[in-house]
Amino acid sequence: MKRVVTLALPLGQSRRNAKRLALAAGCTLMLVSPLLWAHAHITATEPEAGAILEQAPERLELRFDSPIRITQFEVTGPEGTVELGEDPLGPLAETHGAVPAETLAPGDYEVVWRGIAEDGHTMSGGYRFAIQE
């Protein structure tokens, strides 16, 4: 007598298979997942955060690991808000720089910035540095 092979599975078995498939798909997604750093992150500042400088910096800079559009860049010091000769607000870029209009006087300074990354996330940050007398 010939044996008939059928592709149809009993209901319980097809459910078990569907569960296994879903579990395998989930595990695969988790395992193949690369390390994702979706947002932009600040990688360095110029001068460094907390730096105590002997000379006034000619340029202030923010560096990111992916492009960001800066919308606020404020520097405050012993004489109040520092006027910037070169405006860092502009297009998407990984590095944003600002040049003080005049040489910075000795004292404590704070840089505050805000921006929007390529993926639409808004970001903010700040750091301090000092210039010795």
Partner: peptide
């Protein structure tokens, strides 16, 4: 928020344009 956190920035055409051109605008 992008203008530093004030109502004047909320109606600033440049900042509204920046948000509009970004992924958030999309």
């Amino acid at each position: 928020y992008l203008g530093g956190g004030n109502w004047a920035s909320a109606f600033n055409p440049v900042l509204l344009g920046i948000v509009g051109e970004s992924a958030q605008g999309e």
